[in-house]
Nucleic acid binder design. Structure first.
Length: 326
DNA sequence: ATGGTTTTTACTGCGTC
DNA sequence: GACGCGGTAAAAACCAT
């Protein structure tokens, strides 16, 4: 390689001269009309100012920007390494540090050197895991996006979910847990935080992970990240149920107020928010004379009819006690 | 693991269309 | 008779301890 590289240096030099003069944009004249040549950097062209002749276009100098006069100098100045390969996730660009404490000639390293190499291995490993985190993140974010659109969740929820996932990743919560599990848990948490909760069942439907695992992972993530997530507000389910059942705005309004008074009376404690919301929607439909069966409500809310019955009695009772005139 | 609470399942009876 | 509704008991699920 020494011969060719030295020989090519002369070419290199002339090319560089040309480039220098072009860069400075001086003393260049159009071969056709003798007008000024202007370089259009945006299009990588050199054009004549007067006649519009394109002297050169798409020119990219692929040579090195430095000159070397012998092989040693070339080695020193060259900053490129081994060819890349698609067979490795990082195209073979990440650093590998051998585990033997030997130098390039097979000699054993001094203890001082050994310690140094050990430290380097440690750090190299840290950077490598950072890389792997990036890949995890990419997959997880794709998964979050998929599930979010399946559930019709807005963008801000997706972003919140991404943030949660990132934090989980940073806190090393991933080992021992599946990416998809944590991604799902993040989305579940984000949806609740954003006030547009989806029930665990709904989440499970679009996730590739079992319900149990989601619940477990969710609890874990919430605990480890100290996420503050209040029990879901029943009211936040109302709009969705109401629209799924084609109820009037009036009914929806009454459902809300029903839940409000229930809240004041402290009826809802330990009861499932979904059940409460479903019961409120059902009760509101009754009050506004809109036909909805318990069965229909139980369908859209994924709650049993029995629960609806129990809850909506309590709701109406609470309402009556505050406003005896119904 | 356990016990207490809530939800679900399954079944029944009643009234209406 | 099918359907909507209410109630009940037992099973299952959930949650904190």
């Amino acid at each position: 390689m020494t011969d060719t590289s030295i020989r090519s240096d002369s070419r290199e030099r002339t090319r560089e001269r040309v480039r220098e003069s072009q860069d400075e944009e001086e003393d260049l004249v159009c071969p056709e009309c003798g007008g000024n040549l202007v370089s259009d950097e945006e299009r990588a062209e050199t054009v004549c100012d007067d006649c519009g002749l394109v002297v050169s276009e798409g020119e990219i100098d692929r040579g090195p920007e430095w000159r070397a006069f012998d092989a040693k100098e070339k080695d020193e100045k060259s900053r490129v390494g081994a060819p890349t390969t698609k067979m490795m996730h990082d195209e073979g660009l990440s650093t590998n540090i051998g585990w033997q404490d030997k130098d390039a000639y097979g000699q054993a390293l001094s203890s001082r050197q050994r310690q140094k190499m050990q430290r380097l291995r440690t750090w190299n490993e840290r950077f490598r895991t950072r890389d792997s985190k990036e890949r995890n993140l990419k997959q997880a974010l794709g998964e979050i996006d998929r599930m979010a659109s399946a559930l019709g969740l807005p963008n801000n929820v997706r972003e919140t979910a991404s943030v949660i996932y990132r934090r989980a990743l940073d806190e090393n919560l991933l080992p021992g847990r599946s990416i998809e599990g944590v991604a799902t848990a993040s989305l579940y948490a984000a949806a609740r935080q954003a006030g547009t909760p989806r029930s665990l069942d709904e989440i499970t439907n679009v996730s590739r992970v079992e319900k149990d695992e989601i619940a477990r992972t969710y609890r874990y993530v919430v605990r480890e990240l100290n996420l503050e997530i209040q029990p879901a507000d029943p009211v936040s389910y109302v709009p969705r149920f109401a629209s799924d059942l084609n109820l009037s705005d009036e009914a929806e309004r009454r459902a809300r107020s029903l839940l409000e008074t229930a809240k004041e009376k402290g009826i809802h404690s330990g009861k499932s928010p979904v059940g409460l919301a479903a019961a409120a929607v059902y009760a509101a439909a009754l009050l506004t004379n809109e036909k909805v069966t318990q069965n229909e409500v139980s369908e859209v809310a994924n709650i049993s009819e029995v629960t609806i019955r129990n809850r909506y009695h309590e709701l109406l009772e609470a309402e009556d006690r505050i406003q005896p005139e119904g």
